[in-house]
Simulated assay, not measured.
Amino acid sequence: MLRIGSLVINVSDTGRSGDFWVGALGYERGANPEFLHSPDGSGPRLHLDTTDRTHLDLWTDSAAEQAAEVDRLVGLGASRVPWDYPDDADFVVLEDPGGTLFCVIDTSR
């Protein structure tokens, strides 16, 4: 089932922004301090990033589910975005009909 796995937020200072979001949401820092999560693991993670644009990461549980969801989303009006993918990419970049980018990620990798 497709779900919001994380919200990538473009910030100028990951430490300062992390401190704010930890206090605001009661989230905790992960092993990588740029990744914040709720104490019980429910809800989406926050990924603080100084170089990436703000966008949603939508998670799937397998490569087959990822492919099916990408096809379904394209059928709803999303478009594939030309992207320079690394060889081991676990994500597909799409844009909604308004041009907002988002990723569909296979979390099984």
Results as ranks from 00 to 15, higher is better:
82 P>N: 12
82 P>E: 06
22 V>R: 06
14 T>G: 02
15 G>C: 00
102 F>G: 07
22 V>L: 13
13 D>Q: 04
96 D>E: 10
73 L>G: 03
30 G>L: 01
89 A>W: 11
77 G>I: 01
68 A>E: 11
93 V>Y: 08
10 N>D: 01
28 E>Y: 04
93 V>D: 00
21 W>A: 09
48 L>K: 03
60 T>C: 13
74 V>S: 13
33 P>G: 00
92 V>M: 06
95 E>Y: 08
54 T>L: 14
3 R>E: 01
63 A>H: 07
55 H>G: 09
15 G>N: 09
102 F>I: 02
106 D>C: 02
24 A>F: 15
89 A>T: 09
95 E>A: 15
74 V>Q: 05
54 T>C: 15
38 S>P: 12
103 C>A: 04
47 H>N: 09
87 D>F: 14
26 G>Y: 01
41 G>T: 03
93 V>S: 03
99 G>D: 02
49 D>Y: 00
48 L>N: 08
56 L>V: 11
78 A>S: 14
73 L>K: 06
4 I>Y: 11
35 F>V: 15
40 D>H: 00
71 D>Y: 08
24 A>D: 04
74 V>T: 05
26 G>R: 00
108 S>G: 06
93 V>L: 13
85 Y>G: 04
89 A>D: 05
28 E>A: 07
65 E>S: 02
85 Y>Q: 03
41 G>N: 07
35 F>G: 01
16 R>P: 09
30 G>K: 03
87 D>W: 08
100 T>M: 15
78 A>Q: 08
32 N>M: 08
64 A>V: 13
90 D>R: 13
18 G>D: 07
65 E>P: 11
96 D>F: 14
6 S>E: 10
87 D>T: 12
7 L>C: 12
18 G>W: 08
94 L>M: 05
29 R>Y: 12
46 L>R: 13
46 L>I: 09
96 D>C: 13
31 A>D: 11
19 D>G: 15
7 L>F: 09
7 L>M: 15
100 T>F: 08
51 T>Y: 09
46 L>Y: 07
105 I>S: 02
72 R>K: 14
14 T>C: 08
21 W>M: 04
80 R>W: 04
49 D>L: 11
37 H>V: 02
20 F>C: 10
90 D>E: 10
92 V>I: 11
76 L>I: 01
101 L>F: 07
16 R>I: 06
53 R>D: 10
63 A>F: 01
28 E>F: 08
21 W>K: 05
56 L>G: 10
41 G>K: 11
29 R>K: 13
52 D>L: 15
92 V>D: 01
66 Q>D: 00
70 V>N: 14
28 E>D: 11
102 F>Q: 11
64 A>G: 11
81 V>M: 14
95 E>L: 08
14 T>F: 05
94 L>F: 04
94 L>N: 05
50 T>A: 07
25 L>E: 03
58 L>G: 02
93 V>W: 12
54 T>I: 14
